[in-house]
């Protein structure tokens, strides 16, 4: 943690799991709950906890519905989430200085 002053970063996104979720959604725009669970190798409960925090902060929207008779939970990034993620990445890159990879 020598050069990593995380206190200047958004603490909601800073959790490694939530950072991974936000990174994924920043390009995929939305994903199924099961897809995120598989990709991040998390349990249902663990993923739900992290998504709840992101949803409460307004960074993601969680919509439950059906495809045919099959229940489906879709998670999508919000405008606020996109802005917060961008700010987070810029802050992170600033820590690494001008030599930071793009």
């Amino acid at each position: 943690m020598s050069d990593y002053d995380y206190r200047v970063l958004d603490e909601v996104i800073h959790s490694r799991v939530r950072l991974a979720i936000m990174s994924y959604l920043s390009t995929a725009r939305e994903a199924e709950f099961t897809e995120l669970r598989t990709r991040l190798k998390l349990s249902d409960g663990n993923l739900s906890t992290h998504l709840k925090k992101l949803e409460d902060t307004g960074y993601v929207a969680v919509n439950k519905g059906f495809v045919g008779r099959k229940p489906q939970t879709l998670v999508s990034i919000t405008d606020a989430g996109e802005t917060a993620f961008k700010t987070y990445v810029e802050g992170l890159a600033a820590m690494l200085g001008p030599g930071a990879p793009n």
Partner: peptide, 29 residues
Amino acid sequence: LDGADMADRTAATDLALIRSMMEAGRRRA
């Protein structure tokens, strides 16, 4: 991800995580 050792965590490793997840999301799309 959830068991990541915080002592090993740096801005560089986080950026690498961000990059790989963004690429995965892009391909998902």
